[in-house]
Amino acid sequence: MSSANAGKPRLKTSAMIASIASEGQRTVSAPFGHALVELASRRADIVGMTADLGKYTDLHIFAQAFPERFFQMGMAEQLLMGAAGGMAKEGFVPFATTYAVFASRRAYDFIHQVIAEENLNVKIACALPGLTTGYGPSHTATEDIAIFRGVPNLTIVDPCDALDIQQAVPAIAAHQGPVYMRLLRGRVPLVLDEYDYTFELGKAKLLRDGRDVLVISSGILTMRALEVADALQADSIDVAVLHCPTIKPLDQETIIREASRGGRLVVVAENHSAIGGLGEAVAGTLLRAGVAPSFRQIALPDAFLDAGALPTLHDRYGISADAIAESLKSWL
């Protein structure tokens, strides 16, 4: 370090765990960790497990509160999932945390064979879903939903904000069977409390109605869709937002009902590859039901994405609020 910088705090890169919150946006610190602690205070069968990523999945909050129920498995994601399956067989409800890339790509076979095939009560909560890190293809989980959608018995949840996570934790614990939940960690935005929202496993929720566009979204793209809906009012464009926090099983009834209302462009928005995620799930649902609205998709490209700062990457790949607004206006 140069003498000019001596004594100054060293700046750390924000690429790995950069906040997805906009400047001035309300946030909640570590909603997953605190929700799990609250749940575990009422249920002695809840245990926390991680593969050397307790701090980076907010499971360290649980570890501090319940050290006797916390299991650090080291950098061994396959072992983590195998051990979680063993815990479930002994009557515990393990919450196993790691990064989404490591669960979907490195530990897939163990999740498939050890957990899902036996329908074990394991809850897999994984940080850095989609494009929520700037570290590039090694850490960017753009295909995790596509990988897991084909696994029988496995429920898939993609929460939008802190409230979604707080309410999803006890809901997925109450569900009998394995769950994969995409996890937002650190200081997580809080938006859904303004929409009289309650998380229900397997249910989509219409957060706001609109006559011109129906955006069907999950995860952080629901937050962006709500921002876009507010912004486009100035252009007299009326946007409805249907939030689908559960990707599997999909709330087909609600999706078909809303997409059947005539005269609206239907747009599916997701923080995931355009291949194999919510967009294709919705498209297949509508096609099989004989519903054929004008349809567009906002998603990440079928490519290995660049590394860099998240705002730049979100603009580049079309999932920032500004980019989504421009796409909607160009399609109308």
Rank of each mutant, 00 (worst) to 15 (best):
S2Q: 09
K8E: 11
T13W: 02
T13V: 01
S14K: 10
A18M: 05
R26H: 11
T27P: 09
S29C: 08
S29F: 14
A30K: 15
R42W: 07
R43A: 13
A44G: 00
D45F: 03
G48K: 01
T50Q: 04
D52N: 09
D58N: 14
L59M: 13
H60Q: 14
A65Q: 07
F66A: 14
P67D: 11
E68D: 15
E68Y: 02
R69P: 04
F70Y: 15
M87E: 01
A100S: 15
R105C: 03
I115H: 05
E118I: 00
N119Y: 11
V122W: 06
V122F: 09
A127P: 12
L128G: 07
G130F: 06
T133D: 07
T133V: 06
G134N: 10
A141I: 11
T142C: 12
D144A: 14
I145W: 10
I147N: 05
V151R: 01
L154I: 07
T155S: 15
I156C: 06
V157Y: 01
D158A: 15
C160V: 08
D161W: 04
L163H: 03
Q166Y: 10
Q166N: 09
Q167E: 15
Q167M: 14
V169I: 11
P170I: 09
A173E: 13
A173I: 01
H175K: 15
Q176H: 13
Q176D: 14
G177C: 10
M181E: 12
R182K: 13
R182W: 00
V188D: 14
L192A: 06
D193M: 09
E194C: 01
E200T: 15
L201Y: 13
G202Y: 01
R208Y: 03
R208N: 04
D209K: 08
R211A: 13
R211T: 10
R211G: 05
D212Y: 02
L214Q: 04
L214S: 04
I220V: 15
T222E: 09
A225H: 01
L226Q: 12
V228R: 05
V228Q: 02
A229K: 08
D230P: 00
A234Y: 02
D235Q: 11
I237N: 00
V239T: 03
A240L: 05
V241L: 02
T246V: 12
T246Q: 10
L250Q: 07
D251L: 12
Q252H: 13
Q252D: 06
T254C: 08
T254F: 03
E258H: 12
R261M: 12
R264S: 02
V268Y: 00
E270M: 01
H272W: 00
S273D: 11
L278I: 03
G284K: 08
A289H: 04
L300A: 04
L300C: 08
P301W: 06
D302S: 13
D302A: 15
T312D: 15
L313A: 07
H314C: 11
D315L: 08
D322H: 13
I324T: 00
K329Y: 05
S330Y: 02
S330E: 14
S330Q: 13
W331K: 05
L332A: 02
L332V: 03
